[in-house]
Each structure stands twice: as structure tokens, then as C-alpha cells.
Amino acid sequence: MITSGEEVECRTPERLDARLSVVAGVYVAALVAPTLVFVLVERLEVSNGALAVGTLCTAGVAIAAAVAWRVTHLGRTIVWLDRQWLAWLLPLAGVVPMVTHAFSVIEYPAYLLVDPNAAPVTGLVGLLGFGCGIVAVVLGDVLVTMARTRVADAMVDESAVDLEWTAGWTWVTQVRLLVGLVAVVGVLVALAVVSLGWTEAVVSRGALVAATMAFVVVVLATKAQAAPRTYRLTPEGLEQRRPNGARLFTPWTAIDGVTVADRSVVLHRRSIRPDIRFARRDVRLDDERIRTELGQYLE
């Protein structure tokens, strides 16, 4: 049995592959470059759109190359990216430039329709910055997934897997997650409507569209989170593999214990990290063996 006092050191390579390094570089560039160029264009009062776009591309390539080179030589990066809070922070960081440059999405196209010659260059950079924010949101999630998969590759010995099974969440847990996320999104939409002071017409249309899009995102997120996963027990920890091939490794030292309920098995994680759970009905044929194997590693 592994006790809480024992530490499992993650085995990491000295160099990371180019694919992960490039994704990390592009992610950082998408976050930083538009803001830097926006401030530069505003301070220097640049009036040439082509020059601004060229500067943005040059800055983006330079930042991406520098970060990619650094990450390549820093194998511990995958351990840092495997932390639970970064799984939320990295994608959410892309929302910051989206919010910052949201006005440019309306302003710059409006100028192009009314008077293209009067369109501000800052509006063009802001529009591109908004697009880069969307890219950062996507790449943030991809980066975390890639890092977790590489940690699992480094820690899991295929010949030492004790047990493997596939299971999803209970429908009760799925409903609870869906209701909770809908409540949070509903509060955020309501706060946005009140703070922006939209007119009744805008509220009736804009809020409906925003709420519909948010609800679709919440449903998709719930479905992805609750989808059946493949669980594998190893002497070092528990591996989870999603249908898309993404892998997540959790060492036994990060799990406090296990609770077996009527409908599910819950592995309790430390601090504020969400518990690992799966439905017993999905693994009823191996239910007893799973509990026995878990008992060898957890109290």
C-alpha cells in the first residue's frame, strides 16, 4: 500500500517533442503578441494597417519560437501543465483578450461598412486579438491534454497494469453537473445583461442567443466529462483514458481514499480537486475485483 507520506516522482524526459513545444509557443504568442502590438500601435499612432499586421505576425513568430525552444529543453513542463488548476486556467486565459478586444469586433467592421478610410488601425489589431483569444482557448485545452498524455506515457508501464475496465458516470451525477453548470452560466449571463445596461430589445435577442450558445457548450462539456473512460490500475497510480485518446495519470499519493456507494465508486482526491467517480452498473461483472484491487493501494 502507498501511504500519503510516500512521494511518487514523475519520470520526465530531458527534451520534449516538437509538437508539444510548438503548441505551447503558439499559445503564448496568441495571448501576448496582440496586446503588445495593440499598445505599440496606440502609443505610436500607427496609421498603416499592413504595417500593424506585419508587426503582429513578426512578434507572434518571435514569441512562439522563443517559447517553443525553451519548452523543448524543459522536460518538467509536462508536470507543471498536469496540475489541475492549469487545466482550467490555460483555456480561460484566452477569454481575457476576447473580452479586452470585444468592442473592436463591432467597431472595425462598422467602419469598413460606413467609411473604410476612417477605420482605426487599433480596431484591426483588436479584431485580430479577439481571434487570437479564440485560438488560445482551444490551444490551452489541447496543451493540457498533450501534457497529461505524456505524463501517463512516462509513468505507466504497460506490463505492470493490474486491472483495466471501462465505465462512465451515473445519470444522477450527470444531472447534478449539468444543473450546476447551467446555474453558473445563467448567473454570468444575468450579470452581463445588468452591467451592460442593454435595452429591452437587445436583452430579448442578445441574451437569448448568448444563453442558447452557453447552454450548448454546457451540454457538450457535461457529455464529454461524463463519457465512459477506460481505467487502468498500476502500482504507481490510476490512469484514465478518454474516448478521444487523451490520458490522465493520478498517483496514489493524490488520492485520500475510496467510497463505494450503491450506484458508484468514488475515489477522493486531495484539496479542491474533483473526485474520480464511475458507475458500478458499467462494471458490475468486475465490481468485486475492482474494489479488491483498489483496497491494495488505498485505505
Rank of each mutant, 00 (worst) to 15 (best):
A183Y: 07
A183V: 14
D157G: 15
L163S: 07
T170Y: 03
V172F: 09
G168D: 03
T170K: 03
G168I: 05
A154I: 00
V185P: 03
M155L: 09
R176N: 05
D157A: 13
L178V: 04
W165D: 01
V175R: 14
V151F: 10
V175K: 10
V184S: 07
S159R: 15
T173H: 09
T170P: 01
V151N: 07
V172P: 00
V182W: 13
V156M: 02
V172N: 07
A167W: 01
W165S: 02
T173Y: 07
A160E: 15
T166S: 15
A154M: 05
V182I: 15
V179K: 04
E158I: 06
L177K: 09
L178H: 04
T166M: 09
V184T: 11
V175Q: 12
A167N: 02
D157V: 09
M155C: 06
A152R: 03
A154V: 00
W171A: 10
Q174K: 14
V161E: 13
V151K: 03
A152F: 02
R150F: 01
T166Q: 13
T170M: 05
Q174L: 04
G180T: 07
M155E: 05
W169R: 01
V156P: 00
D162L: 13
A152G: 11
T173F: 05
V185G: 08
L181Q: 10
V175L: 15
T173D: 11
A167Y: 00
L177M: 15
E164M: 08
E164L: 06
A160V: 07
V156W: 00
V161A: 11
S159E: 15
V161D: 11
A167V: 02
V179P: 05
W171E: 13
D162P: 01
A152I: 04
D162G: 07
A167Q: 01
A183S: 14
L178W: 12
V151T: 08
W171S: 14
M155I: 04
V151C: 10
V185A: 15
D153K: 12
T173M: 10
Q174C: 08
G168Q: 04
A152W: 00
T173G: 01
L181A: 12
Q174E: 11
V184Y: 07
V151Q: 04
V172E: 12
L181W: 09
V184R: 09
A183M: 13
W171L: 08
A183L: 15
A167D: 00
S159G: 10
M155S: 02
L181Y: 09
V175F: 13
L163P: 04
V185C: 11
R150V: 02
A167P: 01
V161S: 10
Q174M: 10
L177V: 12
S159M: 10
R150L: 07
V172T: 11
D153N: 12
R176V: 12
E158T: 13
W171D: 12
W165A: 02
M155W: 07
R176F: 03
E158Y: 08
E164S: 14
W165M: 03
V182G: 03
V175M: 12
M155V: 03
T170H: 04
G168L: 06
V179E: 09
M155F: 09
V156G: 01
V156H: 00
T166D: 05
R150A: 04
D162F: 09
T170Q: 06
V172G: 02
D157I: 07
D162H: 14
V172Q: 11
